[in-house]
Amino acid sequence: MTPNMPNHLPQETIPDASPGRVLVCWTVALVGLFLFNALAGLMLQHKPVNYTTALVAHKWQLLKQTQGNLDMLILGDSSGNQAVDPVIFKQQLDIDSLNLCTTGGTTLIDDRMMLEDYLQKHDPPKAVMLVHVYDVWFRQAKLEALSHIPVSVAQLSRSAGADELSLQDQAKLYTYRYLSLYHQNQSLQSIILKPHRYLQLQWDWPSSGFNAQTKHTPEAWKADLRYHTAKAQVLKNVSIHQYNLRELQLINALAKKHQMQVLLVMSPISSELYKQPIFGDFYRQITDALAEYAQQHDQVQLIFEKPLVVGGAHMQSADHVLADAAAFYTTQLAQQIRPVFEQENSQR
């Protein structure tokens, strides 16, 4: 009500609605919302827009499709995804391997789940390689990244932090998985704004799982250098996160059971970053901890305890290499792991 309201203005009138009409109206609206949400979820599952989401889905698809008989499983994060080329391993070591590296957001949980899945269906490989950026080791997994792993939410919930995962976080995992409309809204916005791009979108994934990157953006690389330096300055002291340690123990137990070697591999890193004393000291806290772990377990080896450094011109970011550096890195890596396979072959 407005005092002395002129009658040329639009009015607010109370709708003449029965309880039945009100209920039906809101129920239909909510059902419409959930239907649309389900459709959006299916659409994005079938053809994701987000690179990381698509990458996780693709790697799991590769895992499901593999015929087995692999000598080595390459697991890890996005740095490994674009740094380790199984074709070079085949050329240099004559071994069959598959790059299943996904994203750092899933930390080692994704690695362990993939290994378990592989071992359930196939004979064990000779070795499991875990390629991670130094900072993945002291991080906790991101719920959103975990939600993209195609296993049940209950299983994810258990993996994300055992009993420590709060009810709120458990609920979040469900919403990340099932409320696509809300959590994948950026993807949906881009589809609405540029539908032609979505229709033309084709993810081109090589069957080896290695995804070479060629685009060099100096600004992004510099920004990432600053980010890592700042992180070293702020965090100062770090150690391996308890959940990552737990996952590593689980992987190690599987390795023992199936007589596999576990190769902990440090990702390549920008030389400009590593030469900074503050960063170098920070970085070594993780490599020291991993070296100590490897020393305590016979079947575990740490590769590149002193990291392989690459010049900024060959890097996409501070810890992600471009294609030419990937070839160099994989070649160096092959040299490092050659004894593992020679030893294995001689034993067999």
Binding site: T13, P15, V24, C25, G32, L33
Partner: peptide
């Protein structure tokens, strides 16, 4: 229509669909 809430006064399917669109 000089009616601020015309969406609520329309046929039920139209009201419900518009509200679903608003929610989405």
């Amino acid at each position: 229509r000089r009616d601020l809430n015309w969406i609520l006064h329309g046929p039920l399917p139209i009201s419900a669909v518009i509200m679903a669109i608003m929610l989405v």
